[in-house]
């Protein structure tokens, strides 16, 4: 069981900001996460792809720069999922 942490507006759509989820790959984990929390499906998936600007990180490293959704996930892994975020600061 890996741990998924949700951020921003994703939290409103799930039962908990921190959820234990089964799965061998990042794709499995996301799929079972959305099965248990159907509210997340529409904001994470765009067909078979993860939506643009939705960020997934395993241990602080971007999933898409590694092996993508095929990345292996172990029980100690923490997977963080962020919704789209607008960058920077604005007072200067």
């Amino acid at each position: 069981m890996a741990t998924v942490r949700l951020f921003g507006g994703l939290r409103r759509r799930a039962r908990d900001p921190k959820i234990s989820v089964d799965g061998v790959t990042a794709r499995d984990v996301l799929a079972s996460l959305c099965r248990d929390n159907p509210g997340l499906h529409a904001v994470i998936w765009d067909g078979a792809r993860v939506r643009d600007h939705v960020r997934g990180l395993i241990g602080g490293q971007a999933i898409e720069l590694g092996r993508g959704l095929a990345t292996r996930v172990t029980a100690d892994d923490e997977i963080a999922i962020f919704p789209p975020i607008g960058s920077g600061g604005n007072t200067t």
Binding site: G60, P84, I85, G88
Partner: peptide
Amino acid sequence: SPLTSQALPEFGTAVVLNIVNHIG
């Protein structure tokens, strides 16, 4: 754009903190 129509209005710039912290 989900950034200008949702992310910024809902959380402003403050939501960046968690991700910047998360990546170290």
